[in-house]
């Protein structure tokens, strides 16, 4: 079992309030991702759950039990750090066995569990190496192995993939997702990479300045962002925003259109936005056009990879009328 509930959790460092007030319910077995810009308090929130920091207020319940004041060791959670935090002086085997040794597990149990973790994570041939002699991806797996053997109520990951190169990141992303499907243990995963968030999560928590902006499934966030912040944060490239008169036409303070929701024309069509291409980024599958739109500013457009616009071309943009997001003055979606 591994449900995690935060009730009015607050955190300040001295005078500085990092987390004003968060209430969250994470169900047993769920894969929840915390995303948000750098410095928004994702790691802090995770460390509060782990017990590595004290809360300044509120309660943390694990499986319904109040753990707000419990030390990390007693919470039954496992954490995988961004830096891996492997013990450099121990072999891979001893690294993985360490939590079991701390729990005074008998030798056979330790061997058996280390064996199991090594098999699950393809670490069999590295067991007697030191972490120093492993690649980034292998180290990451050892860190995960060390977490698995404890059979924790939940796994906490703090940006575990950010030190890996792009290709490996995609691999590990899949491996962690598979691991979750296999173990069915609750996982909380912190990242600032919204692609990781969208692809891995059952549900995503979008954090901004210590507040939960929205908590929902990836598609919910994409299709029905609760506010301008979430709309801008989820989706890549970012949503284009327009204020003023153009927005007033839609009875909104501001409107947003995703780059993929435009129709393009080389010739003038009445009632659409006219602009000049400043940069065209050719990705092969897609082409991202950066367009200086008259009176509205710079916009990013996602066009088909076969489009051949280049710098200086005139272009006419028609936003998909059914997919225009409208926001009020406070940024809330209408």
């Amino acid at each position: 079992m591994g449900s995690i509930s935060l009730e009015h959790v607050k955190k300040s460092f001295g005078e500085v309030q990092i987390i004003p007030d968060i209430t969250l319910d994470i169900k047993d077995g769920e894969f929840v991702v915390f995303v948000g810009p750098s410095g928004c308090g994702k790691s802090t929130l995770l460390r509060l759950i782990a017990g590595l920091e004290d809360t300044s207020g509120g309660t943390i319940l694990l499986d319904g039990e109040d753990m707000t004041k419990a030390p990390p060791a007693r919470r039954g959670l496992a954490m995988v750090f961004q830096s891996y935090a492997l013990y450099p002086h121990m072999s891979v085997r001893d690294n993985i066995a360490f939590p079991l040794k701390m729990a005074k597990a008998p030798k056979e149990v330790i061997d058996q569990k280390v064996e199991y973790a090594a098999r699950t994570l393809n670490l069999g041939s590295y067991l007697d190496r030191r972490p120093r002699a492993l690649s980034g991806g292998q180290r990451q797996r050892v860190a995960i192995g060390r977490a698995i053997v404890r059979e924790p109520k939940a796994f906490l990951f703090d940006e575990p993939l950010s030190n890996l190169d792009a290709a490996l990141r995609v691999n590990m992303r899949l491996e962690i997702t598979e691991l979750h499907q296999q173990l069915k243990t609750t996982m909380i995963y912190v990242t600032h990479d919204q692609v990781e968030a969208m692809t891995m999560a059952d549900r995503i928590v979008v954090l901004n300045a210590g507040n939960v902006e929205q908590f929902g499934s990836p598609l919910e966030l994409y299709k029905k962002p609760a506010n301008r912040f979430v709309a801008g944060f989820i989706g890549s490239p970012k949503m284009n925003f327009v204020d003023g008169q153009e927005a007033a036409k839609h009875n909104a303070h501001s409107i947003g259109v995703r780059p993929e929701h435009f129709a393009l024309n080389r010739t003038a069509t009445p009632g659409v936005w006219k602009g000049k291409v400043t940069v065209a980024e050719l990705l092969g599958s897609d082409t991202f056009l950066h367009v200086q739109v008259e009176g509205l500013g710079l916009m990013t457009i996602r066009a088909d990879g076969d489009e051949t616009y280049t710098h200086g071309d005139d272009v006419y943009l028609t936003p998909d009328a059914t997919r225009i997001y409208r926001f009020d003055a406070a940024g809330k979606a209408i």
Binding site: L52, A85, P99
Partner: peptide, 8 residues
């Protein structure tokens, strides 16, 4: 901290 999480 990892050690602490590991129950040390």
């Amino acid at each position: 901290e990892a050690a602490r999480m590991d129950g040390a």
